[in-house]
Amino acid sequence: MTEPRGWRKSTYTQQETACVEVGRINEGAAVRDTKDRSAGYFTADHQQWSAFINAIKTNRFD
């Protein structure tokens, strides 16, 4: 697996430090905690990431 690249966090977080960042990997996406970047990250393949984003957009977590 490739190392994540292009880490970014939502612009909605403004100056908040308690959020997550998303990085790109060839197989999908990687996610890490901005408060403890040294703790590592987890990954999701393209299908998992798409399902997660779709769940957010359709308010399944509300």
Rank of each mutant, 00 (worst) to 15 (best):
M1A: 14
T2W: 07
E3C: 00
E3V: 12
E3Q: 10
P4I: 13
P4A: 13
R5N: 02
R5S: 03
W7T: 12
R8A: 14
R8G: 03
K9Q: 04
S10Q: 00
S10D: 00
S10T: 00
S10L: 01
S10F: 03
T11D: 02
T11A: 03
T11Q: 02
Y12L: 11
Y12C: 08
T13H: 07
T13R: 06
T13K: 09
Q14V: 07
Q15E: 10
Q15P: 04
Q15F: 14
E16L: 06
E16H: 10
E16D: 01
E16P: 02
T17Y: 12
A18E: 07
A18M: 05
C19H: 12
C19I: 10
C19M: 08
V20H: 06
E21M: 13
E21F: 13
V22G: 11
V22S: 13
V22W: 12
G23V: 11
G23Q: 06
G23F: 12
G23C: 11
G23N: 11
G23H: 07
R24K: 14
R24H: 13
R24F: 11
I25W: 07
I25A: 09
N26I: 13
N26L: 02
E27L: 15
E27N: 13
G28S: 05
G28R: 09
G28Q: 07
G28C: 03
G28F: 01
G28V: 01
G28A: 04
A29Y: 04
A29L: 05
A30F: 03
A30P: 00
A30T: 00
A30N: 04
V31H: 13
R32E: 08
D33A: 01
D33G: 00
T34D: 02
T34F: 03
K35V: 06
K35S: 05
D36S: 10
R37A: 03
R37C: 01
R37N: 05
R37D: 01
S38I: 07
S38W: 04
S38Y: 01
A39S: 04
G40W: 14
G40N: 15
Y41C: 05
Y41H: 10
Y41G: 05
F42R: 10
F42G: 12
F42W: 14
T43C: 09
T43I: 11
A44F: 07
A44W: 06
A44S: 07
D45R: 15
D45W: 04
H46I: 08
H46T: 10
Q47Y: 05
Q47L: 00
Q47T: 10
Q47P: 02
Q48C: 02
Q48E: 08
W49Q: 05
W49A: 12
W49R: 10
S50H: 11
S50G: 12
F52N: 04
F52T: 00
F52S: 00
F52M: 02
I53M: 15
N54V: 03
N54S: 10
N54C: 08
N54Y: 11
A55L: 00
A55N: 04
A55K: 09
A55Q: 02
I56A: 12
I56K: 14
K57T: 01
K57Y: 02
K57N: 08
T58V: 05
T58C: 09
R60Y: 01
R60V: 00
R60F: 03
R60H: 08
F61R: 08
F61V: 08
F61S: 06
D62A: 12
D62C: 10
D62N: 14
D62E: 13
